[in-house]
């Protein structure tokens, strides 16, 4: 039976798998993480705002997007973004949006919801007195947030933020539904071309496992190192 498998296919195509596929996956993961954390933090600040309409908008946004399967959001954005772009630019025809830009936008918007909830917990974990102390020294809201609350919230939540990023790294493979050549997309193209489905998908699974396992070990160590002494 083992004679039926041909793992040589990996040796023949690894350049394509990693330099095209994995490079895209990593790039999308990193940009989506940065954008997601940035907008997620803003959303968290809105949700916790004493200005009720802001809190409501952020809450509705987060709850809506979290109730829709990611795959749907990916499709939805991919087909909608050209029209929104056209509307924004007052153009008559749908604008052309590349697969990378479209999927990046999707992931930033989608992951922002999850990062938002993490940052919200992080901000709420900072004792109210810390903000009072900042205000008492004459800092304004933005200064207190930037200097006192967010650095501590971010540090408290770093392990969870990274864990969410590991999930994001795996979720990025869903762009495969848009026929984008991410790591999974690249592997499936090879798999279908050479008829080596079992080999390729096993290989992909092993790579994901190694990467995610290593990352989660790193997060565990980091957790111990960065704890703030109180």
């Amino acid at each position: 039976m083992s004679g039926a498998f041909d793992f040589d296919v990996i040796a023949r195509t690894w350049r394509y798998l990693f330099f095209d596929g994995m490079a895209f996956t990593l790039r999308l993961t990193l940009f989506a993480m940065a954008g997601g954390i940035f907008f997620g933090t803003l959303l968290a600040m809105m949700r916790l705002s004493s200005i009720k309409p802001l809190a409501w908008i952020a809450g509705t946004y987060v709850n809506t997007l979290r109730s829709i399967p990611l795959v749907l959001v990916i499709f939805w954005f991919y087909f909608l973004v050209p029209y929104i772009g056209a509307w924004v630019l007052r153009s008559d025809t749908p604008i052309h949006v590349g697969a990378f830009a479209s999927s990046l936008l999707t992931f930033v918007m989608f992951e922002a919801c999850y990062y938002c909830e993490i940052m919200r917990a992080g901000i709420q974990s900072i004792p109210r007195g810390q903000v009072s102390a900042g205000y008492a020294l004459g800092l304004n809201y933005w200064q207190s947030m930037a200097q006192i609350v967010l650095p501590q919230a971010f540090r408290n939540m770093l392990p969870v933020l990274l864990t969410q990023t590991i999930v994001l790294f795996q979720d990025v493979s869903l762009v495969y539904v848009l026929s984008i050549t991410d790591f999974v997309g690249a592997a499936s193209k090879v798999a279908e071309r050479d008829g080596r489905l079992v080999e390729m998908y096993s290989f992909v699974a092993v790579v994901y496992f190694i990467a995610c396992f290593a990352l989660s070990q790193f997060v565990r160590r980091l957790q111990a190192r960065i704890a703030i002494v109180r």
């Binding site: 007195g129 810390q130 009072s132 102390a133 008492a136 200097q147 006192i148 703030i228 109180r230």
Partner: peptide
């Protein structure tokens, strides 16, 4: 403050 509230 009662609880010092230094920035840790």
């Amino acid at each position: 403050f009662q609880n010092f509230e230094l920035f840790p």
